[in-house]
């Protein structure tokens, strides 16, 4: 921003046409217009939203910019879904939307009206863990545990999608979920175990 002109280049380009018009308008009005440009920062839009997460309906007012990931973590205190990159590159935020695996960081919460979201917190049946959760425990399919919820959500989908014919098949269809600890041995074993049962 150039201090001497007092407005940004983008603003200048956008408003050159307007200024041409303004040339024929009295100075007082021009000053008002320059004042107005101080308020070009748009205010956020809050919309009422009903979302269903783990079969529970939440009614809330949501910022239209809020992703499903941030909605879960920051607004609903469902922190089991993890933020590993916020760019759809690591898979840590994987959840199910209507039963399909989805990256919650690339999903705006406003897109979820009428859909059912399932997170890591919603796959156990009361005290009975999902078989994939049990398998991850017994096969030690993790170390630090941070990518684990995303791995488990993807693993459940991987079995459901039928990509478990071979180790290579599993590895290929689980390659959207990064694990920096490198616990891939145990992740593959967990999926084999569930697929076989």
């Amino acid at each position: 921003m150039k201090k001497n002109t007092n407005f940004s280049r983008r603003f200048f380009l956008k408003t050159t046409g307007a200024f041409t018009l303004l040339a024929s308008i009295p100075a007082v009005l021009k000053a008002t217009y320059i004042q107005v440009k101080e308020f070009i920062v748009p205010s956020k839009r809050i919309v009422p939203l009903t979302v269903s997460v783990n079969k529970k309906a939440y009614q809330l007012d949501s910022d239209t910019r809020t992703t499903l990931l941030d909605l879960l973590r920051e607004n609903l205190d469902l922190t089991g879904t993890k933020k590993g990159c916020d760019h759809g590159q690591c898979g840590a935020c994987t959840v199910h939307v209507d039963g399909e695996r989805v990256l919650s960081c690339l999903t705006l919460s406003a897109m979820l009206v009428g859909k059912e979201v399932t997170t890591i917190e919603g796959i156990a049946d009361g005290d009975h863990l999902h078989p994939m959760q049990e398998a991850f425990i017994s096969c030690d399919g993790f170390q630090c545990g941070y990518c684990t919820p995303g791995q488990i959500m993807s693993a459940i989908a991987c079995v459901k999608e039928g990509h478990t014919h071979s180790v290579e098949d599993i590895k290929e269809y689980m390659s959207g979920n990064l694990c920096r600890c490198g616990a891939y041995n145990g992740i593959v074993e967990s999926i084999q175990k569930v697929a076989a049962s």
Binding site: R73, L78, T79, G80, T81, K82, K83, T119, I120, E121, A124, D127, L129, Q133, E134, F136, I137, S138, D140, F142, G145, Y146, T148, P149, I152
Partner: peptide, 23 residues
């Protein structure tokens, strides 16, 4: 329940209950 074989914190990690710094 019978004790699970696995890490002491395993249940917290596979259920998403374990709290990491930002949580």
């Amino acid at each position: 329940q019978p004790p699970r074989e696995g890490r002491v914190e395993a249940l917290d990690k596979v259920t998403g209950k374990g709290k990491y710094a930002a949580e």
